[in-house]
Amino acid sequence: MGNVPTLQIPEGWQSRVPAGWDWTELWVAIEKGKHKIAHELVQKAIDAQIHPKTILDDGLFPGFNLQGDRFSEQIIFIPEMLITARAMKAGLALIRPLLAAAAEKPVGTFIIGTVLGDMHDIGQTIVTIMLENAGFRVINLGTDTHPDKFIDAAKREKADLVGFSALLSTTIYYQKVTIEEFAKAGLRSKVKILVGGAPTSQQWADEIGADGWGKDAMLAVQLAKRLVKEPREAWE
């Protein structure tokens, strides 16, 4: 068949773990969304003195990325993606403090929220978890977010990226307005702006001057990883 996502086994993973170690169980636990098992297995890996970055990259990501690809391909749907995200979060909760201790800096700071007038949050909940999993520091402003709130948060947190979600044909208008407000506040060149949500498109993103459009959660994260590397005006 055409696009059947497969498990991407990290190259040379055996060299980063004690002899006889096997990640398969954890990959499957994340894939199947078994958050209690994921929690146990990550704890076991920590106890075995495996580097937290290795646990993240070799233990957690393969199963997660597999599901993300399947989600993009429509092989799985929202419920399956949510349970995987939840299992991932359970594992991540254990290693995040260790990553911080190991001076793993966040990839970037991402402000996310649903725009003014819109109460939907399932999509941005998935994106938030996936961005956190990808190493971003994420500040989620919730739903029905006024442009000023996005701007205040971006200033306060010295954000690298800002993402607006909108799920209604009537509220995508506020993606445009929020981008205009960033421009008026003189902040447009300090942050990269991403938009997403069911009624949006690449064409819409271009039209309103966003830096990128995430067709789905997986692609949004890939886009974020790319955009965060692009040059921006520095915060004072």
């Binding site: 199947k32 969304g33 958050h35 209690k36 749907f77 419920p79 399956e80 949510l82």
Partner: peptide
Amino acid sequence: ICFPGDEAADMLLSGGA
């Protein structure tokens, strides 16, 4: 949004596994 008998939905709702 699921059809009856979907495991993922059951797991999410029970908070289990």
